[in-house]
């Protein structure tokens, strides 16, 4: 990772942070409805892993905390924000919402809202890639709590049994909704749990993007080289509650401070400043620029976009005019 890459990643992560914070404001203003799960604190996980992969080429799938993953894959942030605003110009045409961002042209295969749901879907995409002989891999990002679902075990077993090119990334933020990991999970270190399936795995600091990148590089290379699945656990923390309806009362201020002292963006920023690659003013200017872009470009687009038409309510339930429904055409 060279200096230019680090600066770009800093910008991407700061953009992701500001984007999510602006979502928070829009939610409070009731411009965004439904459930909203925000990503601040975990940015180095998504950015570090996908930097080591090939976003837009590899097939990425995740849970409901999905805005940032979609954008890193190549989704237009304007379309993501418009989706949150439930507009026709949104990435899912206003039908999906925050938890269901999709951008299949960039191989972002969606956000799914059943905890653990994407595990087998990712294995299936990997099966398809293997059958078709492509060099893509499937990457599945989920939280630690998803590992207590049956799909985790069923999918790991099949992924290894059939040596599928899938990378499972566990963003371990220590909480499943409001329940701390040691109160829900018998084995705390998630990477150890996959040993039972004979899948290679590693645990890494999820706050330091350079460490994430390095660990992810190894993981991605392993999978892309045809060695079967890999499991990467990244230790991280979300700053906000599980969703906007979560008061976040179950965590101590001390614990929160401990993690915000290791903020992924600040850590990278300070490293660049220390190395003389960037000044504090450069950073501030970048921040201002990003905030302007979000307000004047992204929010403005979402605000001014049209709503979906009510007379199109039943569109997208089934394929349009599929001839096989009528026995091969009438």
């Amino acid at each position: 990772m060279n200096v230019a890459d680090k600066k770009r990643l800093l910008r991407e992560m700061l953009f992701a942070r500001r984007f999510e914070e602006r979502c928070y404001e829009a939610y409070v203003e009731r411009k965004i409805g439904g459930f909203l799960h925000l990503y601040p604190g975990q940015e180095a996980c998504c950015h570090g892993v996908l930097e080591a992969a090939r976003p837009g080429h590899d097939y990425v799938i995740t849970g409901y905390r999905d805005h940032v993953h979609a954008i890193k894959c190549g989704a237009d942030p304007k379309e993501v924000m418009a989706e949150l605003y439930a507009k026709e110009t949104g990435s899912s045409k206003g039908r999906g919402g925050s938890m269901h961002i999709f951008d299949t042209k960039h191989h972002f295969m969606g956000g799914y809202a059943l905890v653990g749901g994407p595990f087998p879907l990712a294995a299936g995409m990997a099966k398809a890639v293997k059958m078709k002989g492509g060099d893509e891999i499937a990457i599945c990002f989920l939280g630690d709590a998803a590992n207590n679902q049956g799909t985790f075990h069923e999918s790991l077993n099949m992924a290894k049994l059939w040596e599928l090119p899938v990378l499972y990334v566990c963003e371990n933020n220590l909480y499943g909704i409001g329940t701390r990991i040691d109160r829900s999970t018998a084995v705390i270190d998630q990477y150890k749990r996959v040993a039972g399936y004979n899948i290679p795995s590693a645990q890494e600091d999820g706050q330091d993007i350079e460490k994430v990148f390095k660990a992810a590089k190894k993981a991605v290379d392993h999978v892309r080289s045809g060695n079967g699945p890999y499991f990467l656990e990244l230790m991280t923390y979300r700053y906000r509650g599980h969703s906007m309806s979560d008061s976040n009362a179950y965590r101590s201020k001390k614990e929160e401070r401990m993690w915000s002292d290791r903020d992924p963006i600040i850590m990278l920023r300070d490293r660049l400043i220390k190395a003389g690659e960037m000044s504090k003013d450069d950073y501030k200017a970048m921040d201002t620029e990003l905030l302007d872009e979000i307000e004047n470009d992204i929010i403005a687009f979402a605000e001014s976009s049209p709503e979906p038409r009510v007379d199109e309510l039943e569109r997208y339930v089934f394929a349009d005019n599929d001839p096989w429904v009528y026995g091969g055409g009438r």
Binding site: M109, G117, G124, A128, K132, T151, E154, M158
Partner: peptide, 13 residues
């Protein structure tokens, strides 16, 4: 549930 999901994921591609 696992293999049904795997089939569904494969069908995406």
């Amino acid at each position: 549930n696992g293999y049904t999901g795997l089939g569904i994921g494969a069908s995406f591609l």
